[in-house]
Nucleic acid binder design. Structure first.
Length: 511
RNA sequence: GGUCUGUUCAUCUAAGGGUUAGGAUUCAAGAUUUUCAUUCUUGCCAUAGGGGUUCGAAUCCCCUACAGACUACCA
């Protein structure tokens, strides 16, 4: 064991936007690295040219940026091991594949996709699954079975071929997973995985191991779906003679759908009524747009906080964590083994917690773009004040509008239920008198309005509750919102009076 | 089908053999708010089933059930 610096990588393939699971993998890698003062690298695994999606790579970086995950080395940042995009490292891998062939750990295979497919079909017809392994490879066309002259000829004639790993016969491969402990596999049940494809590109397995080695990765933290390929990877490190510097593996539990079966997938997004992506994404082919947490009004810190508690817990009862606190408390041995069902409700709660912790000015800055989109003339001081007044009742930034639009414009309509409940016979006349009375109030500030108002209502012998609620109806159009006299103060005397007069004119009496 | 992994309230989870099995979200009730929401208080709710080991098991072992992942020239 060397005492080298901790280095981890997040290695997505740019086939589309990241989803919650991918983000969590990135986050845990980041937290682990930073907790130990190590490096976090981003490596783009684009070895499958057929699945490349334009924009996906930029999306990944933007999503990481939004979450506050800082990349130490990557395609954009550069670094001592550049390039960080596997397509740009293409020339490197053939040599490593060759090394494996030379040492007898891999071989050429000339079987066509059609041949393989037909093998699978016949196996399936017998209720079996075809695997390219110790027993079946004898019957296939490869450099292990073909006479040397024959496969040499195939090779030099430009026949397409792949390089397969020669899975050893009946061996137990054991490895320690930092989350799961001792895990072992029998090589007889594993297959001769393709390492190098006929298009000249390596597969994930080869590229991943080679790059992790070259980039001096110390810990591989990835999703549980990779657990079955851990033995292959261990065997590859051995075959290359890199076992002494092999990274430690950790396989994160899966994130499951909120309801139903299976792991959360990219397709679940809008179908289940919550975003699965950090940022909105427009599919370049179909043009279909998927929602994102950012666009839906979630704050990145809350999003990260929620993500951090999916499969990890601090062992204390603390639930709200800043990124720095997460870095401070994170450790892999407090990551659970079982899959976590994703709960969109709790995500909302987290967002509320973060929203109310924002200062009024911070919130105003977030809310102003929304106001502008509504065509409202923005005065920063006023917006900040409104934010402070209504933030407690909001889960999302855009709800500030729903909860406080009346600070910026008169209600365009009046809630029918409230009207029929409050706007009884006589009420319009009383409200008209109150409007007149407001004209005489000396100091227009909340407490200075409340005092004389209640005096006035009491003297008149009117029902105080009815007057309060009717006043609210006039000013807000419904029956919600913060303290009514606070509203009066902020919108001003003139506006208050004019809203009452308007209501008196417009609202019909319900008998 | 095979291999691997997992299983504590509805959900996220705590409890490294000894507690009335704890917290959070959701839900319900009450309080506060002469509105609504927030907030506060209280409540409901769990060790998958069966065998062991042990004075004692959520915790260790075995079996069953269930769930999931993987089983491509995809990652």
């Amino acid at each position: 064991m060397t005492t080298s610096k901790i280095r981890v990588r997040f290695a997505p393939s740019p086939t589309g936007p990241l989803h919650i699971g991918g983000m969590r993998t990135a986050l845990f890698n980041y937290l682990f690295a930073k907790h130990h003062g190590g490096d976090f690298l981003l490596r783009i695994e684009d070895t499958d040219q057929t699945r490349y999606v334009p924009g996906a790579e930029a999306y990944i970086m933007e999503a990481l940026d939004w979450c506050g995950i800082i990349i130490d080395e990557g395609p954009r940042e550069g670094g001592p091991h550049a390039p960080y995009r596997q397509s740009e490292r293409k020339d490197l891998y053939a040599g490593y594949a060759q090394q494996l062939i030379d040492t007898g750990h891999a071989y050429y295979a000339f079987d066509t996709p059609e041949e393989l497919e037909s093998n699978r079909m016949t196996a399936e017809a017998n209720g079996e699954t075809f695997t390219y392994n110790v027993t079946t490879r004898a019957g296939m066309r490869n450099s292990l079975t073909l006479p040397k002259g024959e496969w040499h000829a195939l090779l030099s004639s430009g026949q397409p071929y792949v390089v397969r790993f020669r899975m050893p016969d009946n061996e137990i491969v054991a490895a320690t997973d930092l989350i799961r402990g001792h895990v072992q596999f029998n090589t007889d049940l594993l297959d001769d995985k393709v390492l190098f494809k006929s298009d000249g590109m390596p597969t994930y397995h080869l590229a991943n191991v080679v790059d992790d080695h070259l980039m001096e990765i110390t810990h591989v933290i990835r999703g549980e779906e990779w657990l079955p390929s851990m033995p292959l990877h261990v065997l590859l490190y051995r075959a290359f003679g890199w076992e002494s510097t092999m990274p430690q593996f950790s396989h994160l539990p899966l994130i499951l759908k909120p309801e139903g079966k299976g792991k959360l997938s990219k397709r679940d997004g809008d179908k289940l009524g919550f975003p699965v992506f950090p940022l909105a994404w427009k599919d370049p082919v179909s043009g279909e747009v998927s929602r994102g947490y950012r666009e839906d009004g979630y704050l990145p810190d809350g999003f990260i906080n929620m993500l951090s508690l999916l499969g990890w817990n601090p062992g204390t009862e603390q639930e709200i964590f800043s990124m720095d606190q997460l870095i401070e408390s994170f450790s892999l041995d407090r990551v659970g083994k079982s899959g976590s069902r994703f709960d969109p409700e709790k995500t909302k709660w987290f967002n509320h917690q973060y929203l109310i912790r924002q200062t009024d000015s911070e919130l105003a800055n977030l809310f102003i773009p929304f106001l502008q989109s509504k065509g409202v003339k923005v005065q920063f001081e006023l917006v900040a004040r409104v934010c402070g007044l209504v933030k407690d009742r909001c889960y999302f930034v855009n709800e500030i509008w729903e909860q406080g639009f009346f600070f910026f414009q008169a209600p365009a309509s009046y809630d029918e239920k409230i009207v029929s409940k409050r706007w009884k016979d006589g009420v319009p006349e009383m409200m008209a008198e109150i409007a007149k009375f407001f004209g005489t109030v000396e100091n227009w500030s909340a407490p200075q309005i409340k005092e004389p108002f209640s005096q006035f209502v009491t003297e008149k012998g009117w029902n105080f509750g009815t007057m309060m609620n009717s006043l609210r109806l006039c000013l807000v159009g419904s029956s919600f919102g913060p303290d009514i006299f606070g509203i009066c103060e902020i919108i001003g005397r003139e506006e208050t009076i004019s809203r009452i007069e308007k209501a008196v004119q417009i609202i019909a009496i319900v008998p």
